[in-house]
């Protein structure tokens, strides 16, 4: 279960807005986190609290293949991203790094609304107690989440 406040964003939030290309040579994860969502909202990295949830429109994470876009959100404390749809490479990267990504076609969350996300049982609980169900993730993807990402998943296999 993950709990946090909603930060709302629009459609087609691309990876340059999530993590501008000029910082791509940074590989220290703490420093990467300082630029989270900088291209879309320069105040985001300072304001986001651990567990907070991004609620966005369609095609979230479009653009480049940069894994920094996931690392920056995860290390900045983002607990989950909910969007109408996700760009493919961002989606894969998020799975690999165990950042919960949830696709919900009809979104009407409010800014700062408190949500609880249950990835395993595929539902979101709103502050008023109402429940929104989403399509459960395929088993192979849930296993990667359970392991804490693809690195520990493979580590267990290869160590």
């Amino acid at each position: 279960m993950r709990k946090g406040n909603v930060h709302k964003f629009g459609d087609n939030i691309d990876t340059d807005q999530i993590y501008p290309g000029r910082y791509l040579d940074i590989s220290d994860h703490k420093k990467i986190a300082e630029h989270a969502m900088e291209g879309a909202d320069p105040e985001f990295a300072a304001e986001v609290k651990a567990g907070d949830i991004i609620a966005a429109g369609s095609n979230f994470g479009c653009g480049s293949s940069r894994e920094h876009a996931v690392i920056t959100l995860k290390k900045a404390g983002v607990g989950a991203v909910i969007a109408k749809s996700f760009a493919r490479i961002f989606y894969r990267n998020a799975v690999n790094l165990a950042l919960p990504v949830i696709q919900i076609k009809d979104l009407d969350f409010k800014e700062n609304e408190k949500l609880e996300v249950n990835l395993e049982e595929a539902y979101i609980k709103r502050a008023d107690g109402s429940i929104i169900e989403f399509t459960p993730l395929p088993e192979n993807i849930l296993e990667i989440y359970k392991a804490g990402g693809v690195i520990p998943y493979y580590k267990a296999k290869h160590a």
Binding site: G63, S64, S65, E67, I89, R92, N93, N96, Y154
Partner: peptide, 26 residues
């Protein structure tokens, strides 16, 4: 390839697709 524009290689009849760094590591 670790680049989104890997779709380019479809022009040669290849299945080309971009992946992230950790995908490539696997």
């Amino acid at each position: 390839a670790t680049d989104s524009h890997t779709t380019t290689h479809g022009s040669f009849g290849a299945f080309g697709t971009g992946v992230g760094a950790t995908d490539l590591a696997t």
